[in-house]
């Protein structure tokens, strides 16, 4: 798997330069709570071409940082973004709670307790 380090500032341009809808399949967005209010963010893609290569964009952000949405570049990303807002309490732009949990659900079940 190819890993590409990015940052919240560069994320949009990095994925915009990489992603071509007819070449790459977006697998999912993932996040891992590292503790100490830090989140590791990952975006997984694979090629349509055979043999396919998986590419992961990766960065670390603060738990309350505003994370840019990539759904204007990668349309199906809205589903993964909405799920992580609910389950890990991420603050992703233009994404509200209430996709897999109730909108008024208190807290985020996958976020580590302080």
């Amino acid at each position: 798997m190819k890993k590409i380090e990015t940052s919240l500032d560069k994320l949009h341009s990095d994925i915009s330069n990489f992603y071509k809808f007819d070449l790459h399949h977006f697998i999912v967005m993932n996040a891992v709570d590292l503790g100490n209010e830090k989140m590791e963010l990952q975006w997984f893609f694979c090629d349509y071409a055979h043999p396919c290569e998986t590419t992961m964009f990766q960065t670390v952000a603060g738990s309350n940082d505003l994370i840019p949405s990539i759904k204007d570049i990668v349309h199906p990303a809205w589903v993964g973004e909405a799920e992580l807002v609910d389950l890990l309490g991420l603050n992703i732009e233009n994404t509200s709670k209430g996709f897999v949990l109730e909108a008024d659900f208190d807290g985020a079940p996958l976020k580590k307790k302080k």
């Binding site: 697998i27 999912v28 709570d33």
Partner: peptide, 15 residues
């Protein structure tokens, strides 16, 4: 430390 599951129906929601 973490387990993430992405199901096929999840990918197909936008379509």
């Amino acid at each position: 430390e973490r387990l993430k599951i992405k199901a096929p129906t999840f990918s197909n929601i936008p379509a």
